[in-house]
């Protein structure tokens, strides 16, 4: 019964969702939106589980003085400060239990929660994103090391596309006559992006879509049940 009931629910809900794709009549037309709302409601409750896990794991590390425990403490304090600011003075659109506290907001320029979000969180988030630029450079270096036919091909294609997207690259082939326009670097770059790259990406997407059909069927038919926690 522990397995049977979830499997039956999965099967019926799956069939209803698939049917709603082809049946525009009520109640099928509105069932997807309803189910999405259910998911949001359940997610709302589950958020509490996440917060409890966060506090428990970090507190434990601080309590047993694990290596680098100070960082976990900073994490907990940051979490607490944001929650308190939100509860006491509210977020951007909602008031907190102390109201919007105009004086404090005037002094900071915005509500404390929004101030911390804009001036701390956003900058930290941008910093992490900015790391991508350096990682792309190091990853590209490794990818373009010429050690096989494929990596040579990759490097040539990458150089052509990069040059084709820059002004200097465009000027390299600007002197070519109109009849030889197909060798113009921006055109070659566009060709590489529009045909071989697009074709490969579509092939991946088609195969992934087939994989999704297979996976969904396995789940709907109850053949794949490891997402329920176990095989039997």
């Amino acid at each position: 019964m522990k397995r049977f009931l979830p499997l039956m629910v999965t099967f019926f809900i799956g069939i209803i969702v698939i049917s709603s794709e082809f049946i525009p009549h009520k109640p099928f037309s509105s069932i997807n939106a309803g189910l999405e709302n259910w998911f949001l409601i359940i997610s709302g409750f589950a958020i509490l589980l996440g917060q409890i896990s966060l506090i428990k794991v970090n507190s434990n590390k601080v309590y047993i003085k694990a290596e680098n425990w100070q960082y976990y403490l900073i994490g907990l304090i940051s979490f607490g400060v944001m929650v308190l600011c939100g509860i006491l003075w509210g977020t951007q659109d909602a008031n907190g239990i102390l109201g919007s506290h105009v004086d404090l907001s005037k002094w900071l320029g915005s509500k404390p929660f929004v101030y911390l979000f804009d001036n701390v969180y956003q900058h930290l988030s941008s910093t992490m994103f900015a790391l991508l630029a350096f990682f792309i450079a190091s990853a590209a270096y490794r990818a373009f090391i010429m050690r096989s036919f494929e990596s040579n091909l990759l490097m040539i294609a990458a150089v052509v596309v990069m040059l084709g997207r820059t002004t200097i690259g465009t000027s390299f082939t600007a002197w070519l006559p109109q009849g030889w326009r197909f060798l113009h670097l921006p055109d070659v770059a566009n060709f590489v992006m529009n045909y071989p790259t697009n074709a490969a990406q579509r092939a991946i997407m088609i195969s992934a879509a087939l994989g999704i059909v297979g996976s969904s069927l396995r789940i709907l038919l109850g053949i794949e049940r490891s997402y329920l926690g176990g095989g039997d």
Binding site: S207, A208, L210, G211, I212, G214, L217, I223, S226
Partner: peptide, 28 residues
């Protein structure tokens, strides 16, 4: 792509699940 979705069936080696992979190949 599809290898991610095939992983569970592939690793389980169960005939039921492997059969579904063959069905995907027909789709391809």
């Amino acid at each position: 792509g599809e290898e991610l979705f095939a992983a569970s069936a592939y690793l389980s080696k169960e005939p039921n699940q492997l059969g579904s992979l063959k069905g995907q190949d027909f789709g391809k």
